[in-house]
Design a protein around this nucleic acid. Sequence first.
DNA 1: CGCTAATTCCGAAACGTTTCGGACGCAACC
DNA 2: GGTTGCGTCCGAAACGTTTCGGAATTAGCG
Lengths: 338, 338
Amino acid sequence: MVTLKDISREVGLSVTQVSRALGGHADVNRDTRDKVQRMATRLGYRPNAIARSLKTGRSGIIAMIVAGSRDPQANAHLFEIVMGLSAEISALGLQFVLHVGQTGADTTQLHADLYRSGGIDGFVLIGPAPDDPRIACLLRLGAPFIVHGRDPAQSHAFVDIDNFAVGETMADHLLHLGHRDIAFLNGPESEFFALERRRGVAAAFAKHGVTPDPALTLSIPMTEPNGRTNTLRLLDAARPPTAIIAGNTMLARGVYQATESRGLNVPRDLSILAHDDGLELFASESFDPPLGGTVAHLTTAWVTLSADLKQIIAGQDDPFHTRVLDLTFTKGLSACAI
Amino acid sequence: MVTLKDISREVGLSVTQVSRALGGHADVNRDTRDKVQRMATRLGYRPNAIARSLKTGRSGIIAMIVAGSRDPQANAHLFEIVMGLSAEISALGLQFVLHVGQTGADTTQLHADLYRSGGIDGFVLIGPAPDDPRIACLLRLGAPFIVHGRDPAQSHAFVDIDNFAVGETMADHLLHLGHRDIAFLNGPESEFFALERRRGVAAAFAKHGVTPDPALTLSIPMTEPNGRTNTLRLLDAARPPTAIIAGNTMLARGVYQATESRGLNVPRDLSILAHDDGLELFASESFDPPLGGTVAHLTTAWVTLSADLKQIIAGQDDPFHTRVLDLTFTKGLSACAI
DNA sequence: CGCTAATTCCGAAACGTTTCGGACGCAACC
DNA sequence: GGTTGCGTCCGAAACGTTTCGGAATTAGCG
């Protein structure tokens, strides 16, 4: 390993000055700076990240810890998130590492251990539960972190979308089209975003003076198979829905599959709207007919999320960074008047 | 952050002795050891991983760097690998980090940079290409690493299976059953394992005095959709195969889908064998009828792989650790005599 | 009592980096 | 000529840990 000392010996300067030269400080002569830089590249010098971290107290490493899942689609989705985040964070000159815990493991302790043993500057949390113990733990430790989504019970930095509006917008659109029997394939209502969406849907119903059938709102993990089987079940019911709102494009894919296997036409026999996170694997343009619904690209979330986290790590976090991103709505061709 | 100095001040000992007490060294009194340990837990001491790494030159971190893929199944598969590896490595008291590069990025430089800037003890490589530049790079740097699979062009530590036997065993079984028109959905023959399997299949054909139809061997990424579409194409050919060998349970899933959509009976109309890596998401027991073929669980690969890598890092790597794991064969109910 | 040996402890150095507080030489200024 | 200021440079300390080489105390033994 080639160190600053090697360079300093070679060019006949002190370690201090070599460090300052490479660090781009002011009080070093142009010529010596060039000389040092040339020697550094000639020797193939790479600053030792460990030593630098020890001195500065910063490692430049941002971690995300997840418990693996048994569900292939959940994993594929997670992996897409990881890739988006990773790209954004390395664009900021930081390192992103993913730590996969055992399936179903409690990652709270892992967060704490990893932080307290140094070497991690901050964390990204996704899919917060109500009263999420990870958030409580990181707050207690004073560790920098940011959440995608939010836990209303605790005050912390987050990047989120307006999930109330997600539910309200789509339900309102369908109600305007005359639909009354509207099924809602919601995400797991153990998470805050799903509760918000349900509230939004309820608000739209109330606005139109319609009382929704509670049996038509389902709280399920948002995967393709879940979308398919639950849609089939709904269609087999005594009074099948005329429209379906899906929380996700993966769910929507399942809904489309169900209509196809039943020989139904979208949107004539069944209107479909879904919230689109902009996942590449389930792009709304790949649906036939084109899928309508609310849109909020995750990729835009990653850029503000990582930028905010960087600031938090730098220490300018006095008012908590809380961002609610914009939402758009596309009509698509998957919903029509009844 | 609570350090050794804090403990030493509290119990009235030197930092040295506190370190030795916690490290479990011999020359420290029973009583003082206990006293130190109690104080350490009382203060919530966690050794600083950075400082320890700097001194010992070991971080206990093993990294795997992958370029993300656009293919959801490839990602899900990769994620399953990551989870298996991660579990095994943390069981050894080491840390596993996954570094996801940009899709299609050259990870060679990333390996080099990460290693030369310290902080990474060793690497796990998967899916080696012929003359893999990552292997060449790590060999040049003298970095500890181990490969799942192998690159015959370079000498390195690896854990692999006998892929020649994979091809030979399954082809031999089908030939014994009287099949002659045997299709082989092989993995990408840009990788060594696929070439070996093809050689094995060819050897079995030669043993039976049969000359195979080259048009029946396909070199394709091993995913479900690829299995489905290519099987359909094969079945539509002038002389459709009576049996199919799939390189993978994901491919096999696609083959099953194709037979189903054509209304064919397995194994009466089409015999199917596949190599089974023991992936949970595509478990052979979940096939109907039960899938036959060669079996080699990846999970067993991870335990020897991580144990070997640990030894390599410790420095006992004089003879390269090269392991070829056992293979079994299950008949299943997916293949019958013609 | 003097010698050795065992037990228990500690100071200091080291890992590679950053940074604080100065030092040195030299020009400019009153 | 003394003071100030500027441009370059450097020694030393620090981050928290491990470890080498001893030192101090006690016990055993002739």
